[in-house]
Amino acid sequence: MNAVHVARREIKLGFRNPWSYSFLVLFTIFSLLLLLIGAQSPGGGYTSTTGSMLSLILYLLPLMTLLIGSFSLTAEKEEGSWQLLAVYPLRTSSFVFGKYAGLSLVLGAIVAFAFGASGVAGALAGGGFDLRTLLLFLVFSLLLVLLYLAVALLIGTVAANRWQALTYAVAFWFFTVIGWPTLLIASLGYLPYLWIKPALTALTLLNPAELVRLFVVVRLGGGSILGPDYYRWVEVMAGGWGPLLFAGICLAWIAGAGGIAVWAWERGRRHG
C-alpha cells in the first residue's frame, strides 16, 4: 500500500460523501451568482467587481475546504478505518500525503465543475466572464484550496472528533478571513511604530487567505494601492519571477503544515 492507494480511496470516499455534493451544488450556484455580479459592470483588471468576487470566494471556499478536509481525517479515527490501515505496512507520510492528494482532487473537481458551469452558462447567455478572468478566479480558488487543505489536515490530526474539528476549523477560518485586520490592528498597535510593517509582513505570510488575495491583487495590476511601503514586494510579485516565487512560498507553506500533520499523526500512531 502506498500514497496512490490512499489517494484513490480518498477520491472514492470523497464522492460517496453527500457533503461533497452539497458543496458542489452550493459552490456552483455561488459561481453562477458571481457571473451575474460580473455581468453588471464588466471590466478587466482590479475593479470593484473583481474585488468583490475575490471577497465572496474568500468567505466561502476556505471554510468549505477546512470542513471537508478536517472531517475526512477525523472520520478515519472515529470510524476505526485508521486502526485497520495502521496494521498495513503503510508509512504515515504516505497516508497523509495520499489524503492530501485525494482531497485536493475532490475539491479541485468541485471548483472546476462550478467555474466550468458558470463559464458555459455565461458564454451561452452572452456577456459572461472573459477567459482571463475565469482562469484567474480558478487559479485563485485552487490556491486557496491547496493552502487551506494543508491546514485542514493539521486540524484533522489534532482534533479528536468531528465536533472538535468543526470548532477549530471555524475558528481558523474566522481569524484568517474575517477577524484578521481587527486582530492585527488591535495587537500590532502595542508594538513600536517601526516594527509594525515587518511584523505585518511576517504575519501575512502566515495567513493563507491574505497571502493568496494579495498575490492575485498584485497580478491584477492593483499593487500600487498597497502604497510605498510594499513597493519592492509588489515589484517582485508583479514581475516574471513572481508566480514562481509565490509557488515556492505556497509549497513551503503546504510542506510546513503537512509536515507537522505527519509528525503529529506519527506520534499518535506510536503512542496509540
Binding site: F15, G44, L105, A112, G116, A117, G119, V120, A123, D130
Partner: peptide
C-alpha cells in the same frame, strides 16, 4: 465599460473542458 467584448467562444470551450475534467474525476471516484 473599460472592457473589450468578451470572447465567449474561448470561455465556453474552457468552461466545457473544466466541466468535463471535473465530471471525469467524479465518475472515476464513484
Amino acid at each position: 465599460s473599460a472592457a473589450e467584448p468578451a470572447a465567449s467562444g474561448a470561455t465556453a470551450t474552457a468552461g466545457a473542458a473544466l466541466l468535463l475534467a471535473a465530471s471525469t474525476i467524479i465518475l472515476l471516484g464513484v
